[in-house]
Each structure stands twice: as C-alpha cells, then as structure tokens.
Amino acid sequence: MGSSEEYFEDDYDYKDSMPCDLNSNHKLEIEIETYIYSLICAFGVLGNIMVIVTYAFYKKAKSMTDVYLINVAIADLMFVIALPLIIYNENHHWHMGTVACKLLRATYSINLYSSMLLLACISGDRYMAVVQARRSFGIRSRTLVSSWLICLAIWLLALILSTPTVIYNQRYEEQNLDGEMIVECNFKFDHNDTDTARLMKVLVPSTQVSVGFFLPLLIMSFCYSSILATLLRAKNFQRHKAVRVVLAVVVVFVICHLPYNVALLYHTVGLFKQRQCEAEKMTLVAITVSRSVAYLHCCLNPILYAFIGVKFRSHFQKILIDLWCHGKKYINTSRFSRQTSDLYIPPPPCKLAEESSEKQSFTM
C-alpha cells in the first residue's frame, strides 16, 4: 500500500480544463515492480525462514530481543509470501477479486506497523542491555513473558491501524484517456461520501508516516545514539566492532524508508492543492520507486539483526551442515536401495552438528 494507492484522480484540479492521464506509466510501473518484487520475495523468504528455523530448532529465545526478532521475521515472511499474489493480481487485473485486494493491501499495512514498532522495541532492549546494563540485568532476565505480551499488543495495534485499509480498498475498473479499461485495487469511495473520502485520504498516509516511520525512527535514534556513546567510551575491541553494526542498522533503516515516507508526506500535503500534471506524474513515479526500496528492508532485516552476529551465524552454519548431512544420507539410502549386490557397503553416517548450550542472544 503506497501513496499511489491513496491517490484519487477526482482530487486533481485540471489546469486549463485539460485532463491528466495519471495511468500513462501504469504498465511500465507494473513491469518494473514485478522484477523487483520477485527478487525481494526470493531473498526475503529464504532469510526469514532461516531465522525462524534457527529459533525453532537450534536456538531458544532467551532474551527480549530474541522474541522481537522472531516476530519481525514472522511479519516480514507474511508480507514476502503475499508478494507473489500481489504480482499475479497486478498482472492479471486483480483476477482474485475484492477479497484478495483487501487482504493483500492489509498484509503490507500490518507488516509496516508491526515490523517498524518491533524494531523500535529491539533498539529499546539493546539500550537497556548496553547503556543501563547494571540496572536492567535482573529485570530483563525475568521479563521474557512480558516481551511476548508486548508483541501481542503490537500485533493488535497493527490490526487496528490497518482497519481502514481493509474497509475502503476495493477492486474497481476505470477508463483512461485512451479508452483502455484499467483494473485497480485502491481506496474507493461513493461520490456522495466526500467527507469520509477526504478524511481517509489524509488520515491513512499520515498515520503510516507518523506511526510507521517517524515514531520508530525517533526511538531508534535516541537508543542507538546512546548505545554508540557508551560503546565508544569502552576500550574493548569487540564493542568497537559493534559500533559498525549499530551504524549499519540505522543507516539501512533510513535509506530504505526515508525516501518513501518523504514522498508520501509530500504527496499527502498537496492532495487538495492544484498540481501540474507532469509534476504529479513524477511524484507518483518517485513513490513507486521509493516504495520498492522500502520493501527491501524485509530482506535486510535477517542480515542486520540476526546473521550479522557471530553467534547467530554459527547456528546458521549448523543448519547448512545438517541439511548437507541429511541430503547425503537420503542420497546414499536411495543408492543403497537400488543395489542388487550384497557387497555394497554404505558410507558412514554424517555427524550432525550439536546444538550449543551456551547462552546466546542478539550480538551487536
């Protein structure tokens, strides 16, 4: 769900009564999005499944950050799984109907709010672990249950904030200036319900920008700046290496989400003003491109928050070793079943990686 979905052509004030075809680049945008979304889906599914598998079979959640990471992976996986359905419907005129339109748009909205607020929670937990280490040690060791309750509250808040997306998104057809029928899955209101239309056109993108970006950014900026100050005062080499991780987390977050939210905010502010046709087209193209960049964060979250840690990488290596061992075992068993000679001796079984009992958590 982007600003192009929140745009409504009847708000545009046509200069000199000349119509403006905002759908002229529709096919090109869908084609570009198809390739980008396919890459995001492939890498996002792989990375987030690895995070979930690691926590399910190799590493128990022992800290609040671990719980938040599991929920971030679930939120991102839910969205990237929905991407192929979005691609299919974009290319096939939303063949799956209005129900799919509502659910798929809501999937991104839920992912946006839940994952962004969970990332803010991770930064808060890291702040307590590093900056307030002595005060928070006893508290954080006894609050694993409360972290699940916080995650539940975030999911419920994400559902509530996504309610307008479910209610007002519809599949509908409209005709462009060339006489071609274009099927859209966007917000749609009755012509007589102008008050609700104006409210939702401002409320939905404003909430998305404020709660889905600026609030998490404010929390992360405070927490990670305090963490950086603490780490830079430490003489431990490992902690100085952690500075690069903190910087990477913040920089990637800003690069992925700032352009899209700035474009969305700019478009929302100018909704009820007269705009030039070409300038409006450029704004919508900028929103489309920046939205695709924002989607990339679903692929980068596993790398930044999980695999960049040494301890988590060791678990990932164990997964690869175990998959290799199970694969060899299956191949050797199949080969042995086809042998007719009693002289065939199967190779010795591969030793699976043993799970480490060391207490491990998110490594910065």
Rank of each mutant, 00 (worst) to 15 (best):
L77K: 07
W94D: 04
F137V: 10
L119M: 11
L149A: 14
L117G: 00
F137N: 02
F137M: 02
Y88R: 10
R134G: 14
T107R: 00
V99I: 11
I110R: 12
C121R: 01
S146W: 00
V99W: 08
S123A: 09
S115I: 13
V80D: 12
V67M: 11
I70W: 04
P84N: 15
I87T: 14
S147W: 06
L83N: 08
R142N: 02
W148S: 07
I86N: 05
A129R: 02
I87S: 14
W94K: 10
I122F: 00
I86M: 06
L104W: 02
I110K: 08
N89K: 11
Y108T: 04
M128Y: 02
M128C: 07
A73L: 08
I74F: 13
L119I: 05
L149F: 14
K102M: 07
S146F: 00
M128W: 09
L83Y: 08
Y113G: 08
Y127G: 11
V130Q: 06
N91T: 10
Y113L: 11
H95G: 12
L112A: 14
R134V: 12
L119E: 08
L83E: 03
T107L: 06
A120S: 12
I110Y: 05
I70F: 01
M96I: 03
T107N: 04
L83C: 11
V145M: 06
S123P: 12
H92E: 10
L117F: 08
V72D: 07
I81P: 08
V67R: 07
T107F: 06
V67K: 06
A75H: 13
I122W: 04
E90D: 13
N89A: 01
N91K: 14
S146V: 07
H92Y: 10
K102C: 10
V131W: 00
Y88H: 07
V67S: 11
L118K: 00
V72A: 03
S115W: 12
C101R: 05
T107I: 14
C101P: 12
T98H: 01
L144Q: 04
L85P: 13
V130T: 02
H95N: 11
W148K: 02
L117S: 06
R140F: 06
T143R: 01
L149K: 08
N111G: 12
A129Y: 02
L69F: 11
L77M: 14
V130M: 00
I81F: 13
P84V: 15
S115F: 14
L119S: 06
D76Y: 14
R142V: 03
I87N: 12
W148H: 09
L152R: 04
R134L: 10
R135N: 09
Y108W: 05
I81L: 08
A100C: 12
A73Y: 04
I86R: 07
N89H: 00
A82R: 03
I87W: 10
N91F: 07
A75E: 13
R134N: 11
L77P: 09
I74Y: 13
A120R: 02
P84C: 15
A100W: 04
T98R: 05
S147N: 14
S141K: 13
A129D: 00
L149E: 10
E90G: 09
S109A: 08
